[in-house]
């Protein structure tokens, strides 16, 4: 099968990690790394034998005939400009910024939505870790309220997250409704500076409309979903299986990263990248059909 030709926009930590993940894929091929200055990330790509440009999105557009998809690992402000530019020339964009121009994409839930779009947004790291579980819970019964607490090691929270932490909580909470199917929702993020760094972990609380949901059904649905996610994030584990506590169900997920470019404790960054690559592979299959 013909591989999907990919470019990465933004050669920072996220972009560099994506480079390794794309490199491992049977469906994707990295053809260009784009930045705006000579940087460590550009050099890293060049050392791996990948073509590079420091003309940013325009550098990608110059090569438009040889590029199928772009992973945008820059910033929300930058994506607002580059996203439409790329779509105009027919390049599909996986948006890893909080810009959310296109619809949310959570591969274990709504991969089929790829068909009609040219720009999809990967929500947030906490969203990728928790939305599939909330969705799995929604298959058992309608969810009145979903609440997630994402805890992340301080070292894994980059300057973008730190400068706008409200964006994380608000975007995640919104996607818990739109994709996770909860009627109402809340998201909380906690940064923990412990050394050695803590693994990314997520606590999920669910209140059902129906008080008589069976724990066994919730457990089965959640376990199925965990297996599905482990397919693209092997370090994704159900640390505490769902249990009933007064009016709600509680469960805890831990995310150990693959340690491609980023350390294993950065499961938060690993899962959003892995989700983007998983979705891109699906797109490759769809286009190949």
């Amino acid at each position: 099968m013909k591989k999907l030709r990919c470019a990465i926009l933004g050669p920072g930590n996220i972009g560099s990690d994506l480079m390794y993940k794309i490199d491992r894929s049977d469906y994707l091929e990295l053809v260009l790394m784009a930045g705006i200055v000579e940087s460590e990330g550009i050099k890293r790509a060049r050392d791996k034998g990948i073509a590079t440009t420091i003309e940013g999105v325009d550098g990608i557009i110059k090569e438009k005939d040889h590029i199928d998809v772009v992973f945008d690992a820059t910033s929300a402000a930058a994506h607002l400009v580059s996203g439409p530019k790329l779509n105009e020339v027919g390049i599909f964009c996986f948006d890893l910024t909080p810009a959310a121009l296109g619809p949310y994409m959570v591969p274990s839930v709504n991969l089929d939505d790829l068909k009609n779009e040219l720009d999809v947004n990967l929500v947030t790291c906490g969203g990728q870790a928790t939305i599939p579980i909330v969705y799995a819970c929604s298959l058992v019964g309608s969810i009145k309220y979903a609440e997630i607490i994402a805890s992340i090691s301080s070292k894994s929270a980059g300057p973008g997250t730190r400068a706008n932490i409200d964006e994380f909580t608000q975007t995640t909470a919104n996607a818990l409704k739109v994709v996770g199917q909860a009627k109402t929702s809340r998201a909380i993020i906690i940064l923990n500076p412990a050394d050695p760094p803590v693994l990314m972990a997520n606590t999920i609380h669910i209140i059902y409309d129906d008080e008589n949901i069976k724990t066994e059904d919730v457990l089965n649905s959640v376990e199925k979903m965990v297996k599905k996610i482990q397919h693209y994030v092997p370090g994704y584990t159900l640390k505490v299986p769902p249990f009933k506590n007064k009016d709600h169900y509680t469960m805890i997920i831990e995310v150990k990263g693959r340690g491609d470019f980023l350390p294993v404790y950065s499961g938060n960054l690993d899962i959003i990248n892995s989700a983007a690559v998983e979705a891109a592979e699906k797109l490759a299959v769809m286009r190949g059909e």
Binding site: S151, I190, P193, N245, T250, I252
Partner: peptide, 10 residues
């Protein structure tokens, strides 16, 4: 740290 009440359950 403060706010990690969920870790009590874990």
């Amino acid at each position: 740290v403060g706010g990690q009440e969920d870790k009590i359950i874990e």
